[in-house]
Computed example of a mutant assay.
Amino acid sequence: MNANWEKRYSFRLQEEDEEIYNLLARVPDNKRSETIRQMLRFAVRTLSENQKSNNENRRLLKEVQLLREDLMKQHLELLTKIESSLSAGNVQADDTNEDSTITEQAIDDSASAMLSSFGIEF
């Protein structure tokens, strides 16, 4: 790292910085600069970690949303298949009723024809 170590930074505390003032007032004069540097390093590391964590959280949220959308799509497909199979079952049941009616009619006709061949009429 090529830095200008001659560069100095300073700042003034404001009224809302009472907590910082109280902290620095307890630190000996010859340790204040080091304390401030350590606090800034900690803040930079914490901000960086928070940003990484937020990025990971956003990535995970997108993944969960995609999974949810996929699950909803599969759920709708399953409901559609169930509805179509129920409809097909009702049609088959209607067809079975018609077939049984036709079969009963055919049996009646065959029996009548056989009986009439022997001269028995109903």
Rank of each mutant, 00 (worst) to 15 (best):
I120F: 07
F118I: 03
D109P: 03
R37P: 00
I107V: 12
Q92W: 12
M72D: 14
L24M: 00
L24D: 01
K31H: 14
I120V: 10
S48A: 11
N54T: 14
A93V: 06
T101G: 08
N4H: 06
E77H: 07
N30P: 00
V91D: 08
E121Q: 15
D29F: 13
E63S: 05
L23Y: 06
L13I: 00
N55M: 12
A43E: 07
P28Y: 08
I120K: 00
A43Q: 07
N97L: 11
K81H: 10
S85I: 08
D29C: 09
V44M: 09
L60A: 05
D29T: 15
L71W: 14
Y21G: 00
F11T: 01
D17L: 04
L79N: 09
R32T: 00
K7W: 05
K52D: 08
I107Q: 08
D17Y: 02
A111L: 13
I82E: 07
F11V: 01
D109W: 08
K62G: 01
E16D: 13
K31I: 04
N55S: 15
K73P: 00
K81R: 13
R32P: 02
N90H: 15
S112P: 01
Q92P: 02
R37Q: 11
T96L: 07
E16T: 06
K31T: 05
A88K: 06
Y9K: 02
S10R: 03
I36P: 00
D29K: 11
S112Q: 14
N57I: 14
S48L: 08
A43R: 03
V44L: 12
S117V: 00
